[in-house]
């Protein structure tokens, strides 16, 4: 082992550029991380709906107009027997009550006179019993 002398001469001590800034510590692993995140989401509701309905009205007879007719008996040989007959009420029209309002129902053609049919009265009316 020698006894080497190391000297530090002051050779032009001030001619060097200013020292560089102090070195930073090594790059920190947790520094400079790029993060992509954020955003949101929500449930999208997809409704399906259907509706069904019906409604109806009901007619209530309150008054009828009718003709009265008599139909005679016709014997098998085609002769009429005026002693035997049936009487009928032939409807001419009906007056209804629909949701509290008067409404007219069907109108019918009056019955025609025939040999065996005798119209004995027309335009008779009768109200529905309460």
């Amino acid at each position: 082992m020698g006894f080497e002398t190391v000297v530090r001469p002051a050779v032009f001590p001030n001619i060097r550029p200013a020292p560089a800034r102090a070195l930073r510590i090594e790059d920190a692993p947790d520094k400079g991380i790029a993060v992509i995140t954020g955003g949101s989401n929500s449930v999208i509701d997809l409704p399906y709906s259907e509706q069904h309905s019906w409604s109806r009205s009901r007619m209530v007879e309150v008054k009828r107009t009718y003709d009265k007719a008599r139909i005679y008996y016709t014997s098998p040989d085609g002769t009429l027997d005026y002693s035997q007959y049936w009487e009928f009420e032939v409807l001419r029209s009906i007056e209804f009550l629909e949701n509290g309002s008067t409404a007219f129902g069907q109108q019918y053609t009056p019955m025609q006179d025939l040999d065996n049919v005798e119209i004995i009265d027309r335009g008779l009316t009768r109200k529905a019993p309460k």
Binding site: D45, L46, P47, Y48, S49, E50, Q51, H52, S53, W54, S55, R56, S57, R58, M59, F96, E98, A103, G105, Q106
Partner: peptide, 14 residues
């Protein structure tokens, strides 16, 4: 007799 029945249906789908 002049009475009516009204039937309706509808739907909506998203």
């Amino acid at each position: 007799d002049g009475a009516t029945t009204n039937v309706k249906s509808s739907y909506s789908q998203t």
